Amino acid sequence: MELATTQPSLSTTQLRDLYQRMLLTRLVDGYCWQLHQSGRIGFVASCRGHEAAQVGSAACIRPSFDFTLPYYRDLGVVLTLGMTPYEIFRTYLQGWPGSLTDPDQRLHRPIQHWGYHKHNMISGPVPVATQILHAAGIAFACKLRKSSAVAIAYCGDGATAEPDFLEGLTFAAQQRLPVLFICEQDCSLDAQVFRLSPARLPSGLTYRCVDGSDIREVYAFTSEALELARTGQGPILLEMLVTRGSPEQAEAECDPLSHCRRLLENSGAWDEVWHAQLTARLRAEVEQALEDALRDSHLSESAESQPANPAPQRRDREGG
């Protein structure tokens, strides 16, 4: 089965909303990177370059109805599905109290994995690609219950080399399960070895390669894929090609925010005043969320350092 190439037209309001979500993701990602650089947290996986693939696909998901299984780089997914910047920072800061200058202390700190159960977002596993099997199992349960919910599993390029990846896809194809697999494929030269080969994919699985820097294309193909899965057409795999960057790198032609800006400019909907006001507002909100998260993390650390039931002082017998 082939996904249609016709793209639903996005209104100016919708495109601006998606740009706003991508900008929020970029800002939160930048401040998480600053926390890492300053030694406040010991791990961060930047999503820079993935914003369109993550926000554009997550915007099509029905929170609290569908089941989403993000992987550790999916900051844009979890923000779009309802997590707040404050919750993001608290997730990163939790488990990293005190100074991180001691190498032994770093070794025993947990790596964050997203989870937001009230919106059916399943916490990610530590092993790479295990969430693909979990999504297939959830989709199987949805099919048995005759539910129109879809399981959406995200993964990175490294997951495609794991046996769990192909096993999950094969089971989903054999059972014609309502599941959407999204692989965020890094297009840099050192990641080409992980590129998917359609000839090696199981029969019964619908596959499509998508420009992950084009928010309009991502939204269009994800919308159609979810509709096919809901109507019993079997599993779909979307390979979204992205170019991963870092906060130190300058914006390139393939940068998702720049691409969306060009779309708005071509339609006459770009406004520098609107963009400046939007950036200032979002930055202020993110900085306030970070300040609150740091304060509350410090309070939590102080509370944990205090004994739960301090022993009463022993009175001197001779002194009465």
Rank of each mutant, 00 (worst) to 15 (best):
Y71A: 04
T80F: 01
L81H: 03
L81C: 07
G82W: 02
G82S: 05
M83H: 00
M83G: 07
P85K: 06
F89C: 10
R90S: 14
T91A: 11
L93N: 09
P97F: 02
S99P: 08
S99D: 10
S99N: 13
L100D: 10
P103Y: 15
P103V: 06
D104P: 00
L107W: 09
R109Y: 01
R109L: 12
I111Y: 13
G115V: 03
G115P: 02
G115E: 08
Y116I: 04
Y116F: 15
Y116A: 08
H117R: 11
N120M: 04
M121L: 15
I122N: 02
I122L: 15
V126W: 05
A129E: 09
Q131T: 01
I132P: 05
I132R: 04
H134T: 10
A136I: 02
F140M: 12
F140N: 12
A141S: 15
A141Y: 02
K143R: 11
R145A: 14
S147M: 04
Y154W: 14
D157H: 01
D157R: 00
D157E: 11
A159D: 05
A159P: 07
A161D: 15
D164Y: 08
F165H: 11
L169I: 14
L169T: 15
A172V: 04
Q175V: 01
L177K: 01
P178S: 11
L180R: 00
I182M: 10
C183K: 02
C183P: 07
S188T: 14
L189K: 13
